[in-house]
Amino acid sequence: MGLTMPILAEGSINLLAVNPGLLIWTAITFLTVLVVLYFTAWKTIIKAIDERNDRIEADIEKGKEVREKAEALLREYEQKLNTAKEEAHHIMDESRKDAIAQRDKILEDARNEAEKISKRIEAEIEQAKVKALDELEHTAVDMAAKVIEAVFKNAVTADNHRAIAERELKNIKN
C-alpha cells in the first residue's frame, strides 16, 4: 500500500492492514457528509414527513370525530322522526276521535232539534185541534141558539117545526 503501488499490483493483499491516512479521510468525509446532509436534507425531510404524519393523524382523528358527530345527529334525527311520527299518529287518532265526537254531537243535536220540532208541531196541531173544537162548539151553540131563536120567533106547530128546523139547518150548512 505504499506510494509506489503500480497499477498492476503484484503479490498478495493484506485484508487486515490499516492505512491511517485512509481512516482519517473516511472519518473526515463521513462527518462532513453527515453535517452537510443534516442541515440540507435530513432535517427538512424528517420535519416534512413528521408534519405530514401529524396532519394525517389529525385528519383521521377529525374524521372520526365528524363521523361520530354525524352518527349522533342521525340518531337524534331518527329519534325526532319517530317522535314526530308518533305525534302525528296521536294527532290523527285524536282528530278522528274529535271528528267522531263532533259527528255524534251533530247527529244528536239534529235528532234533538228534529224531535223538538216534531213536538212543537204536535203541540201546535193539538192546539189547533183544541181551538177548532172550541170554535166548533161555539158555532154549534150559536147555531143551536139561532135555531132555537128562529123556532121561537115562528109559531111552532107540529107540522111546520120540522120544516123550520130543516130549513134552518140548511141555512147553517150554507
Binding site: 462532513t32 446532509l37 440540507t40 435530513w42 427538512t44 425531510i45 414527513i49 405530514r52
Partner: peptide
C-alpha cells in the same frame, strides 16, 4: 459523498415543496 449530496438535497426540496 457527491452522489449523496446530489440526490438528497434536491430530494429534500421536492419533498418539502410537495409534502
Amino acid at each position: 459523498s457527491f452522489l449523496m449530496l446530489a440526490i438528497f438535497i434536491p430530494a429534500a426540496r421536492f419533498i418539502v415543496r410537495k409534502v
